[in-house]
Design a protein around this nucleic acid. Structure first.
Length: 200
DNA sequence: TACGTGATGCCC
DNA sequence: GGCATCACGTAG
């Protein structure tokens, strides 16, 4: 339990990794304790040809630099007041990444509720900004690798059915906004809110 | 449903 | 400087 996946797990395209990550366990260790969750929703960002990706047209800045590095690095960035977490994948100089949009709480539930100031289990990790706060993921995790503590990914469960749909929050990305590059575990109660609304 | 929040990059 | 961006919480 909680044995990190090996680095070659990440050496694939973001579309493949987004599907493979569903059911895996995301774990963060801090002085406050261990918090973890099963990944239930992801989005693929395909790099230079994907208008919605930060690395579109090979845009390489201090922020996106890590996307050009070896697969399995952690790419965190700040959106308004929230931190979002991505996993870099594919080969060096192929700047692809998978955004983790929601997890199902497993370990450290009390700790996560406290960090989120929230008592409803279904609301503590059901969004990309929420899960980073619950797990204690921040810009300090930028550039680390996800096969070593304190932030790493381990084997979890095998998802039954995977649902597919368009990504969220990229309305100004031209034709890229319609690409079905979001994946989630069907009927899981911990997927993000906008996702459930879209289904109803 | 609408607004405030406020890091980062890019185009003036 | 001004604006857009891979959200979220709160108020009404």
């Amino acid at each position: 339990m909680n044995t990190p996946l090996s680095k070659d797990f990440y050496q694939t395209s973001s579309l493949e990794l987004a599907k493979k990550l569903l059911g895996c366990k995301l774990i963060k260790e801090t002085v406050e304790g261990i918090a973890s969750g099963i990944i239930v929703e992801t989005e693929a960002y395909m790099g230079p040809m994907d208008r919605a990706a930060h690395s579109y047209n090979n845009r390489r800045t201090k922020r996106t630099e890590i996307m050009f590095h070896e697969a399995g690095h952690i790419y965190t960035y700040v959106m308004h007041t929230h931190c979002l977490v991505n996993i870099v994948c594919n080969e060096v100089d192929k700047p692809e990444a998978v955004l983790i949009r929601a997890v199902e709480p497993v370990q450290g539930i009390e700790l996560m509720m406290k960090r989120r100031n929230q008592t409803i289990l279904a609301n503590i990790t059901n969004g990309p900004g929420k899960l980073t706060k619950a797990l204690g993921i921040s810009m300090e995790d930028y550039g680390h690798v996800c096969w070593l503590p304190p932030l790493y990914i381990a084997e979890g469960i095998k998802p039954t059915n995977i649902a597919i749909g368009p990504r969220i929050g990229i309305e100004n990305s031209g034709e890229a906004k319609d690409y079905p590059w979001r994946f989630w575990i069907e009927d899981n109660p911990y997927v993000s809110r906008r996702n459930k609304r879209a289904k109803s």
